[in-house]
Amino acid sequence: MITKDSVAHVADLARLSFTDDELEQYTSQLDEILNMVDQLAEVDTEGVATTTQSVHLENVMRADVAVAQADLTPILANVPTHKGTLIQVPAIIDKEED
């Protein structure tokens, strides 16, 4: 049984925030999903290797060649706020503490 507190902890790890009602809802939904997932426990996986990709490629290498970035305009057009070619972000410390 997953608790509301642990869901709140996971939300913090995932950089998400929820209202109290949402937290209740996510707790019960995740609990249901984890119950479904828990049937994996009945599978004997002793000594079974993990699969993380299905084509079995290993160490795909390429030459480390610098490529000049083309026009920055379309990239900067997507940036919420920027100054020249620099991306602006809010202060790392709280505004109130400025």
Binding site: V43, A49, T50
Partner: peptide, 15 residues
Amino acid sequence: DAYFKKAAQVRTLIT
């Protein structure tokens, strides 16, 4: 271990 690793192992069995 109980979730991601377990699923990655069962994935091998399915394959």
